[in-house]
Amino acid sequence: MDGYSISELWSILVMQGFSGLSLFSVLLLMALGLAIIFGQMGVINMAHGEFMTIGAYTIYLFSKVTEQYFPSLMPYYFLVAIFAAFAIAFAVGYLVEYSLIRHLYKRPLDTLLATWGLSLIMQQIFRSVFGAREVSATLPDWLMGSWQPTPDIDIPLNGLFVMGISIAVTIAVVLFLYRSNWGLKVRATTQNRIMAGSVGINTKKVDRITFAVGCGIAGIAGASFTTIASTGPTSGSLYIVDTFLVVVFGGAGSIIGTVSSAFSIAQAQSILTFFLTNAMGKVVTLMTIIIILMMRPEGLFTSKVRK
């Protein structure tokens, strides 16, 4: 650490901490959708990353169309496009649940294989439609640039934006699950399907909506992902293992668990990356998670449901 003054070290720490926070935001957004699908419903959706890619390509399409036909609307399109990303991913998720997932609720390992196949098909569709090369959306000006509280510290605005979205989505998910009528039905169905059905909850409909909402959130994750990285046909699948580990590590079925595990994984990874190489930082983080999971298989936070 020689050659750095105290204030420079502090700046490095702040910026490295912030890059950890952006990683945390992306992981959290990805994991929230999965926490609903996997944590609440117990469905292993290996195509989750592809729903994220759907969201990312939606933003790309919106940006191209706006740029071409309504250049004056460029500053605002992003806000509309995020809702569209949610809606499209929601619709595709609804369709997938109806045609595929609902037949496999009793065979979790088979769901894993079927959704893996689905992800291959979706990747190839993306490749045929958008090409194999990575694309990036044209971002509105207010997302570019950075914020400099001191001359040494440089915090990118898009990172702040992603963080804002992930906080908003987390609050929305908590409200949806724990404060809304729908959330009550979702939790009732996961805790005891038969009893929930016998008190008049349409459990099949609940399943379909829950799955679709999870996919829609993945769409939002993809949408915000476009502000910090470009999109390719396989972008989503790069994150799928990390995302599953976040949900499992946090404890399936616990939103607080998902948030705290996304936070600790992202921070550990970005701090280790600074001291070790990129690859080794990731290896050490993943190894630590696995070792902790071996000691505590149920994850950090356990839901108090009797299995």
Partner: peptide
């Protein structure tokens, strides 16, 4: 390949 995964399961 994707269809194989889905078909074999379903």
């Amino acid at each position: 390949m994707g269809a194989l995964f889905i078909g074999v399961v379903m």
